[in-house]
């Protein structure tokens, strides 16, 4: 899917001029008159970034940012501010917005920022996808296999694992092979790496 730049701004003239400018660089653009319209029409599955006016009637840019966070929608945000709103923009960045840009702005600066936002989104989506795959693979392991995996990652020799679980060394070797196939790991190092990643992301959530 081609990425899209969402633009939320209450000023129709300014909104349209932004569309024209971004399209001149070959970007796909969707525009919205206010936060409510964006929340109603926005499709979270498509790679995207969001250009957001700080000051809007109804739900302000900052409120929309909060709403997106409570809904668990992760989309790189770039705030558009007028002179004098810089304090607000700084607050927005502190709360996780990618950046802000003061209007009137330089076209190169804006397009650079939008490209960076789209890259951030692509990276986040890639990471999320890898996590999902890993989750799927981990879920195919049986209870016994998880026990073996845990001990292998702790650096225990097959003999010790066999003793601890009260099974034959041959059986441990058999489990290890199956684990490697299920998790698509070629070496023990790769296996350990996968499990460490899994633990890290789990802790992050």
């Amino acid at each position: 899917m081609t990425p899209v730049v969402h633009v939320v701004d209450d000023d129709p003239g300014f909104r349209d001029s932004l569309r024209s400018l971004l399209e001149s660089d070959g970007l796909a653009v969707e525009t919205y008159a206010d936060a409510a319209e964006f929340l109603a029409r926005f499709l979270p599955d498509r790679p995207a970034c969001l250009l957001l006016d700080v000051r809007m009637p109804g739900m302000s840019g900052l409120q929309l940012q909060e709403e997106l966070q409570t809904r668990g929608m992760r989309i790189p945000l770039v705030f558009i501010t007028a002179h004098g709103d810089v304090a607000m923009a700084v607050a927005a960045v502190r709360r996780g917005a990618l950046d802000f840009i003061e209007k009137p702005f330089d076209d190169e600066a804006l397009i650079g920022l939008v490209r960076r936002a789209l890259e951030t989104d692509a990276e986040a989506r890639g990471a999320a996808q890898r996590r999902k795959d890993l989750d799927a693979r981990m879920s195919t392991l049986s209870a016994r296999e998880l026990e073996v995996l845990g001990r292998v990652v702790d650096g225990k020799l097959n003999k010790i694992v066999a003793e601890e679980l009260g099974i034959a060394v041959k059986t441990v070797e058999f489990h290890r092979k199956r684990i490697m196939t299920k998790l698509q790991a070629k070496t023990t190092a790769e296996l350990i790496n996968l499990v460490v990643q899994d633990r890290l992301t789990r802790r992050g959530h």
């Binding site: 000023d11 300014f14 001029s17 024209s20 400018l21 399209e23 001149s24 660089d25 702005f105």
Partner: peptide, 18 residues
């Protein structure tokens, strides 16, 4: 005034880029 002026700048840049 910043609103329409910013829009004018955007339209002009859009033209120039094209």
């Amino acid at each position: 005034i910043n609103q329409p002026l910013s829009a004018v700048v955007n339209y002009n840049k859009s033209c120039l880029r094209r």
